[in-house]
Design a protein around this nucleic acid. Structure first.
Lengths: 205, 205
DNA sequence: CATTTCAGTGTACGCGTGTACACCAATGTG
DNA sequence: CACATTGGTGTACACGCGTACACTGAAATG
């Protein structure tokens, strides 16, 4: 009873992959056309409607996929938060590796935050806020464990995310060399934030 | 001998204003059509070509206008860098005021960095890098004057710009209330960076 | 086995687009 | 004053788009 549903899932996935395949640093999701995506997926234009209401609907599905991918990065980073010494260094490099593996996904998340429909932008904002909240929690816990508390965990986490994701967005259109140079600078900047946050917490006592 | 050239300049400006007028948080520059802009400017579509090669050409002109506006903000901020006590607070609020006055310009600069043609993105990157360089210079000078030097002025400036512009980009689609809340958080984050940078410089001795 | 469901097709439509071409009328030039 | 320059117009074209409609054939259902 599932040959039918399986096949449907498959072509749905084909549409998603087709859209992703058409994205690159020159081409934003907003510039893709329904016909174009259907063509790339080997479908007649009309068949698109069997799977999504319109391009916006597809877009939200893509953000969802990207969100899952982002959560994977985070989970890995959280593991390292416990074990490693040079947390920041390892985390940033982990993120950069991940980005290099799925550039289109992160193109959407990091570089198309500001464009598109209201719901598109809200969906992206939600994914990123989720990331920030989790990080804030980790920072707080970690700060107490090491007895070097930080000031205002959410604000600190937000700064870290802004720096990291902003940088990662730029990394998308860079050579491997410039990329690792950028990664090094990001680590420095994150260290500044952590240092500053700790110092602010000290001053508050 | 200038009735002709004057008029031409005027309609060119009309085209620029028309494009700017069509931009808002839902509508990105990339989604504007040549005909649409010409229509808004009260021109026949063909007349567009008397002033710009194509939409990309217009886009670069717009980035140029935005860059000039950005440089104005910076000049004001630099004045305050010398006179005021709470530099960061005043600077961030100055930027936010400016943004509220010309939202379309900053929409392009802050939210459409990641989309569009190669030359479009390079033009935007150049404007922002200019800003970062000037800030780095100021930070270095200021740090020496106050005998509280900072570490790696360019890296510090880059972090400040990333935080500030990232935040400002988000501010564009916020209510006035959320906006000032955000501004307050940004000031905190910038203080973290400054504090951290100073501490890094101390540690290096 | 007869019937219903439904993913996918082909045709067709009106629309907005970029831009080529021929033209006009006012300004600038010798 | 005669002529050249040029900002702007109107017409026309082919194109890609979203999507409505009628359809088909295979899988699912009873």
């Amino acid at each position: 009873m599932s040959t039918r549903t399986d096949k449907k899932q498959q072509t749905r996935q084909n549409l998603i992959d087709a859209a992703l395949g058409l994205l690159n640093q020159q081409r934003s999701f907003g510039s893709l056309s329904l016909r174009e995506v259907a063509r790339e997926a080997g479908l007649a234009p009309n068949a698109f409607y069997r799977h999504f209401d319109d391009m916006e609907d597809l877009g939200l599905a893509l953000v969802d996929v990207a969100g899952q991918s982002l959560r994977t990065v985070m989970r890995e980073a959280r593991q390292k938060l416990v074990t490693s010494q040079s947390v920041l260094d390892v985390s940033v490099n982990a993120l950069f590796d991940h980005i290099a593996r799925e550039p289109q996904l992160f193109h959407m998340l990091l570089r198309e935050q500001g464009t598109g429909s209201e719901s598109w932008r809200r969906a992206i904002r939600t994914e990123i806020r989720y990331f920030t909240n989790e990080l804030a929690e980790d920072l707080e816990r970690l700060g107490q464990a090491k007895e070097r508390p930080i000031a205002d965990a959410y604000t600190t986490a937000d700064a870290i995310v802004a720096i990291t994701f902003g940088g990662a967005g730029n990394a998308l259109s860079m050579s491997a060399d410039s990329r690792s140079e950028l990664a090094a600078r990001l680590v420095l900047q994150l260290r500044m934030i952590m240092l500053g946050s700790e110092r602010m917490a000290e001053a508050r006592d």
